[in-house]
């Protein structure tokens, strides 16, 4: 029942004039995918710089609060752009994503990664030195970083595998 509804939704979306236009103009999908990859580059590199600071590997001469203040905008704003470009790609080929288990996995991982990023970000709002106050806090920060890095890697892999896994 749900699968049938999803199927007819995908068919309806693919038949809309917007989707038809994107499908007919050859350069739109690769151009949008390029912008999508540039956004991924901004998000993943920024997340890595924050995580390497939490792990104590890089930017150790700066506080965690300064490093997050510098790089968090380059996570959240590009993420908005990724949602926009991702939506365009879904409209272009609805079933390719919406009926694809790897796409759903990617969205789940994305929510987890956003949650981990917030878990790092929110405590700093009320207490800038939150992640540096005690050895225990530092270890908690390292735990956040070692969760965040594999999540972003998995998101990128899932993103690429959407192209290779057929929708059900």
């Amino acid at each position: 029942m749900a699968a049938q509804f999803l199927d007819s939704f995908c068919n309806w979306l693919a038949a809309t004039p917007v989707s038809q236009t994107i499908q007919t103009i050859d350069w739109i999908v690769p151009a949008v995918q390029t912008i999508h990859i540039l956004g991924v580059a901004a998000v993943v590199s920024s997340a890595l710089m924050i995580n390497l600071r939490l792990l104590g590997v890089r930017s150790y001469d700066q506080s965690v609060a300064r490093v997050t203040a510098r790089f968090l905008p380059f996570i959240w704003w590009p993420l908005l752009m990724l949602l926009a470009t991702g939506t365009i790609l879904i409209v272009a080929e609805p079933a390719r994503a919406l009926e694809n288990p790897v796409f759903l996995l990617k969205m789940g991982l994305l929510i987890a990664a956003a949650g981990v990023t917030l878990a790092c970000q929110l405590p700093i709002r009320s207490n800038a030195a939150f992640w540096e106050q005690s050895p225990r806090r530092r270890r908690a920060g390292q735990l956040i970083a070692s969760t965040s890095i594999p999540l972003w890697i998995a998101i990128i892999c899932a993103g690429r595998w959407i192209a290779y896994v057929q929708g059900s």
Binding site: A41, A42, V44, S45, S46, L48, I156, C157, R160, Y164
Partner: peptide, 24 residues
């Protein structure tokens, strides 16, 4: 079956870091 896509995943991951870090 899956070697090429996995290599592509590693390529995308690594190039994201190259692009992002150079942009910084």
């Amino acid at each position: 079956e899956s070697l090429f896509p996995w290599i592509e995943c590693a390529h995308v991951l690594a190039l994201s870091l190259v692009l992002g870090s150079i942009a910084i």
